[in-house]
Amino acid sequence: MQQFFERYWVFGGTCLLFALVTLRLIIRERVTLQGTLAFLLLLFGMGLASLFPQADAWIATRMGFTLVSNWFFALCIAALSFLHLLALISISRVELRSIALTQELALLQEKLERALPAVGERP
């Protein structure tokens, strides 16, 4: 019974809530599964850590941390940095594609307007 209360249910519940919101966004096609999979995995890992604090303590000691909370902070900072890097890569890729598309669209539009002058008069 005591072990049951030692688990961090509130933290685990928050992770679950975030995961549900993310899943809802994926279902509504506001975000892509490809882009959010790493975030979902992080939430899953944090949820597990909140339910099995003894395992956290064991890993933290092995990694050289005196306090489990410090290990957890370090882990979260590393995970968030990784997620931020993934987001940067994704944004840069989209930006480069957007530039290329804008350029190609402008060239095609110019070609079309020269070939069919009436098209150019449209708003």
């Binding site: 530039i99 402008a106 539009q109 110019e110």
Partner: peptide, 13 residues
Amino acid sequence: RVVRLCRNLGIGG
């Protein structure tokens, strides 16, 4: 001749 970019890309683009 005019090429219209639908958004501002900067001088390089």
